[in-house]
Design a protein around this nucleic acid. Structure first.
Lengths: 184, 184
DNA sequence: GTCTATATGATGATAGAC
DNA sequence: GTCTATCATCATATAGAC
């Protein structure tokens, strides 16, 4: 992996571990084995790095959407849930939740990119929920966007809340979502 | 209000606005009109202030629980939802969500106090959900604690997520929770 | 691309006067 | 209780050598 990509990957992990304002160029530099000033060659200011981290996640979500576009709604739901399962196993939280908390301290460019990312995610979830309902795999009331928000908020928050309660609560939420949704 | 209480109140608001690591003694001092060093008389180290902020919220929740203990489950649910409505109107997020995001940067004392607070909240919600079901006001499957987690995660996350999407999403979630729960 | 050196400013914290 | 003065540390960021 090249240095630029390595920096982005470490920044992503650090943001989701400690928060945007708690990680520093020094944290990244010491892991890579270069000096903090060298990071500025790749990302002159911190918000450039923030934007790059979100862009990378947008790219990865686009790839997932593309890969799963012809799969069933259940498979797409499982994929969505598995993304959060990986976050949980890694003892991190999701990027949207972390940066939403720090939102009022972020530069405008980072805010806008984050909005783009959250819209993309909500649209994707809404889409497979809607399709799942029309194919009678899922059952729920109200609009698919509303249901998407309910499910996304469950997942976004449980990776945060389970830091305080216990890890099993994550599985509890995941199973509850599926049980509630799958048509009997 | 005395200075100590004023400091706690401002710290609470700042944590829920910008996050624990983004607020400083300077932020508080300039609003109160004293010097940053003077804050250290009341709270020698920042984690003392962090603990005090959580303790204050625990006290307030205890008072709510006491005041509502003989009211109906629906009234208690409405009270729970109204707490988050106030947070949303104030353009803030909830303390648990904010500090859970910063959890890996917090002192042990702050972490423990935060766990106590989240348990208290979950227990309260579980209690009125259970009672609401037994009196046939509410209808839901699974344990009351599971349902409490589902509802708390919805509220905790929507105050964060609606910073990125739009304010109406908050009402959407609130109404969806009630509609889902109230027995028809 | 990475280094050293440096500027600049913020931060949490302490000591001691008032 | 609040002040001034001060400290050590850390942060983002820049300039210029290699």
């Amino acid at each position: 992996m090249n240095t630029r990509a390595h920096i982005i990957q470490l920044a992503d992990t650090l943001i989701r571990d400690k928060g945007y304002n708690a990680f520093s160029y020094h944290d990244i530099a010491k892991t890579i084995g270069i000096k903090p000033a060298s990071i500025h060659y790749h990302f002159p200011v911190k918000s450039n790095l923030g934007v790059a981290v979100i862009e990378k996640q947008i790219d990865r979500l686009f790839a997932v959407i593309e890969k799963y576009k012809s799969k069933s709604a259940v498979e797409r739901l499982d994929k969505f849930l598995s993304i959060y399962t990986a976050i949980q196993k890694d003892n991190k939280i999701c990027l949207v939740g972390s940066l939403a908390t720090d939102f009022n301290t972020l530069d405008e460019q980072v805010r806008e990119k984050l909005k783009t990312f959250s819209e993309l995610m909500l649209d994707w979830v809404s889409d497979f929920l809607e399709e799942g309902r029309s194919t009678e795999l899922f059952e729920f009331e109200g609009s698919s966007r509303t249901k998407a928000i309910m499910i996304v908020t469950n997942m976004l928050a449980i990776v945060q809340l389970s830091r305080l309660t216990n890890e099993q609560d994550f599985d509890t939420v995941k199973n509850s979502i599926k049980q509630d949704l799958i048509k009997k």
